[in-house]
Design a protein around this nucleic acid. Structure first.
Lengths: 341, 341
DNA sequence: CATTTGTTTTGGAACAGTTTCATTTAACCC
DNA sequence: GGGTTAAATGAAACTGTTCCAAAACAAATG
């Protein structure tokens, strides 16, 4: 295992200078800095103060916004409940800000005493995960899937539950069912659209492309969605909305516009937590247990940390899929409404 | 500054043994452990590897439930935004589970490389904060106030905004105004009740004690509240609800019971984040910026860490109060309703 | 009771990385 | 060029941790 002294020797400088480079202190010339960093990379240096072993698990968020959402909160809660009995501590890191320039993720993690990482990603930050996975550092990705198997990940399987949800609407007589998805193609949103398509085609219905509507996955997107649906000429009688916050916006704007859910419009939403119970009528939803996702991610991470992975080499990816499920509540009604009621 | 070697000399043991005690490793006799710990306390030892100062800030939660709420999420987001530019990393610890038996909080923090702590408390875990404050370890409490000045804290001043809110209702003609507060007396809830009392007495109205209603501060509490209010004989015409989740429950159950907000019942709620926009009509609320609370807590903590506080001795408490403000939206209407509209 | 055996406890030394202080090197300005 | 200032660097001293062997203790056995 290379130490600062080895690097110092190889780069022809003192250990003090190596330390300065490693801690990004000023007053090191560019030339020396570059020489040290190449030596660091060649030797595959990892920090170990004293001989202390690393004792932290990192929750790495890659996007500025992804720390305050209920999904993240639930994942972190699940994670920390798993950590409690383990002796590891939880550390929250930002992928971009925590890392020094030219430093690999593995080096950054070891510098901070991190033994394994849970990476929270979005579709726009997938490359970060892939680069971590390539280094062979124990890491599990949550929040997005990696088809090519380039990274270990824990994900939800929501296609089947989405199919069931849309089937339920079809069973109730709805035919003009609009599907609402995010403006960017997160893999889980893609799944939900696929589930919608499955259900439609199962009945021999070719889904109208007009009926797949994209709005931002937040409350304002939901409000926008309702206004768009109201002005469509073949107005949908039911909505399948692939995001929890969008649903909240839908319920609010529907109320504002005097649309009665479920009598004027049936809505099936999505729920990570217990948001479905916060609206009236309680929202029929495809549900996912984000807390469980956190716990499972930690379980998988434990396995990865247990094996002494060869450094700088990715191991065969191991994944875990949690099933989403469909719950019928009060926001769906048969169509056409039985007027005798 | 005392080092392990000083402690070793004072306790008459080797540095290896001191290190073992500090890291709570087994295979140290009780007698020696006690001797080392007294030496640690007498010298006011602080860890510094190499000569590096410790590099983590801890977010300490004292209650199992308090990690997933939007309030916590917002505080953590604010906190981590302040941390980004500072070089510190964020660590999440549980007060009870992270600490070894017989270990002081200061020792626990130092063992984990924590330079300062943000403590999230509830009324039931105040003693934890006081005990940390007594040790003189840099720590700032969020979520509750400490009248006696025993701990540094950052809090919201919501009494005045609450008074304004209730005054607004009185201006609109309401006289039977019910106040809803938590079943346990969190200091901020106490403030809000005080603001309610202020407004009533300002007009020479002696508040009816029947009108101060206690329900659990969550959605179900809000639902319960509505059902209770409906069965009161002098039914209130307006509600002032001191908790965001309770409000959500109120809006939901009101809708379920066919109560029209604001025409049948005016409601003023509370909002930590942007929950007020997720209901229809948008909720008139007393608002607090939880993210700012996190940032201010970090600013205060920075000050505390900057001063070399005398070890094991609490410094003069320094506090920060953030003003809550009142926002009028759509959930309030004059009483009696002007029927010409 | 003496002896052996095994476990627990302890210290010495080697090692990890960081920082202070003095020295060297470079730059700059008359 | 000479003198001054600032930047860059290294030797040494310092931090805490862990390996390894020795010591102390306990327990079983002859």
């Amino acid at each position: 295992m290379a130490s600062v002294r080895d690097i110092a020797k190889q780069a022809g400088v003192s250990t003090a200078t190596v330390s300065r480079v490693l801690n990004n202190q000023p007053s090191v010339s560019e030339a020396v800095k570059r020489r040290v960093l190449t030596a660091v990379n060649e030797t595959g240096y990892v920090q170990s103060i004293g001989r202390r072993s690393t004792g932290n698990i990192a929750y790495v968020y890659t996007d500025d916004s992804s720390l305050g959402s209920p999904f993240d909160a639930a994942v972190m809660t699940g994670l920390s409940s798993g950590l409690e009995s383990s002796g590891y501590d939880l550390m929250v890191l930002h992928a971009r800000h925590s890392r020094h320039p030219e430093e690999t993720f593995g080096q950054m993690f070891l510098r901070k005493g991190v033994a394994g990482a849970i990476i929270r990603t979005t579709v726009s930050t997938r490359h970060v995960c892939e680069s971590i996975a390539q280094e062979g550092f124990p890491a599990v990705v949550v929040g997005d899937r990696f088809e090519e198997g380039s990274a270990h990940h824990v994900e939800f399987e929501s296609r089947e539950a989405s199919r069931e949800a849309v089937s339920h609407l079809l069973d109730q007589g709805h035919r003009r069912i609009a599907m609402c998805t995010n403006v960017v193609d997160d893999t889980d949103h893609v799944d939900r659209v696929a589930g919608y398509m499955d259900a439609m085609r199962e009945r021999g219905l070719e889904p109208d492309h007009q009926h797949v509507i994209r709005v931002p996955a937040n409350r304002l997107g939901g409000e926008q969605l309702v206004r768009r649906v109201l002005t469509m000429k073949d107005r949908p009688t039911a909505l399948f909305v692939a995001d929890p916050f969008t649903c909240i916006g839908v319920f609010k704007e529907a109320r504002a516009q005097g649309i009665d859910i479920p009598n004027d419009l049936s809505v099936i939403g999505f729920d990570d937590s217990d948001l479905r119970y916060s609206v009236y009528p309680v929202m029929s939803s495809v549900c996912q247990d984000a807390g469980k996702l956190g716990r499972e991610a930690y379980t998988l991470l434990q396995q990865l940390m247990g094996e002494d992975a060869p450094p700088n080499q990715a191991t065969e990816p191991r994944n875990c899929r949690l099933r989403a499920w469909f719950e019928v509540h009060g926001s769906t009604a048969p169509y056409p409404l039985d007027s005798t009621e």
